[in-house]
């Protein structure tokens, strides 16, 4: 096995172009388990931890540009204001040791349907900055997940950063698991209110082959809020709206039975989480508690 350790981004792209089969390793919290348990025996590892820019972030006017290898710990400590759903998701990842190493770029690279970043990114709105020696492109987050543990990256591409829309309204992330720490989601749900466009976005984890949005639930709620003029004149939501939103969110699931839970339970739980996150975000909106910049 070869261990490639570029010290700058150009070097990383050149290495990936020369060896498209090289497996990138950032925090190593997925890759090392695969290597140790012989689930993967690549000819080359491409270590990204020697490239300082991948651990930096910039908060712009509309978006946060999050370097691919920024650990969850930093998201939690520094970005809860502009990225509330992602910070809430980061808070539930593994343990302190895992959050000190694991990154959003690694979560995207692994593209597990159970990854906790995904519902938050889908709800907030994001683009993945993918690069190769051929050039750079931005992949909308909705188009990034292509199958179970598959993503839209070409073999010679690496993730350089994730551009995430800054919150302009309340956001929530909720996850069902057997306990609070160190738990892979049985299912997860994120909801972001976007008052500046009068829209809402959602993200569901662990309840379909890939992370997905719940488009029917989004359209329904967007229409219900606009129709009743609730953005301008926020009042408590009618029970019928809360119930219908939860039902429609559950219909977006295409879950399986596995060791963590049955498909039926997942559909039910997604509905419960949808309603809960709606209640919390709408309550915050009516109280004017938009996240601070």
């Amino acid at each position: 096995m070869d261990f490639l350790r570029p010290t700058d981004w150009a070097g990383a792209l050149a290495a990936k172009a020369a060896h498209p089969d090289a497996v990138p390793i950032a925090g190593g919290t997925d890759v090392m388990v695969e290597l140790t348990f012989d689930r993967r025996r690549p000819d080359r590892l491409l270590d990204l931890s020697g490239i300082p820019e991948l651990r930096r972030w910039e908060t712009g006017e509309r978006t946060v540009r999050l370097g691919a290898a920024v650990p969850y710990r930093a998201v939690l400590d520094h970005l809860a204001g502009p990225l509330p759903a992602l910070a809430l998701a980061a808070r539930t990842v593994g343990s302190p040791q895992i959050r000190n190493r694991g990154s959003v770029g690694g979560n995207l690279g692994a593209a597990s349907p159970a990854g906790d970043s995904h519902p938050a990114l889908l709800a907030a709105g994001a683009e993945v900055e993918a690069a190769s020696v051929r050039g750079t492109r931005r992949i909308p987050i909705d188009a990034f997940y292509t199958g179970v543990k598959r993503n839209a990256l070409a073999p010679d591409e690496l993730i350089r950063a994730i551009h995430i829309d800054r919150a302009t309204g309340p956001q929530q992330f909720a996850k069902v698991g057997t306990r609070n720490a160190m738990v892979i989601a049985v299912c997860a749900f994120a909801l972001a209110l976007h008052p500046h466009t009068g829209t809402v976005r959602t993200g569901i984890g662990s309840a379909a082959p890939t992370p997905v949005r719940a488009p029917d639930a989004e359209d329904y709620l967007t229409g219900a809020l606009a129709g009743a003029g609730l953005w301008e004149d926020p009042r408590p939501l009618p029970e019928a709206v809360r119930r219908r939103f939860a039902e429609l969110a559950a219909t977006a699931c295409r879950p399986i039975d596995d060791v963590r839970g049955t498909a039926r339970y997942r559909v039910h739980a997604v509905g419960v989480l949808a309603r809960r996150t709606l209640d919390r975000t709408w309550d915050a909106y009516t109280k004017g508690l938009t996240p601070c910049a």
Binding site: G28, M32, T36, D47, S49, R73, R101
Partner: peptide
């Protein structure tokens, strides 16, 4: 300085 699991750090890192 960071608290980490040594089993998840590749030797070369």
């Amino acid at each position: 300085g960071d608290l980490v699991c040594a089993c998840l750090v590749a030797a070369g890192q």
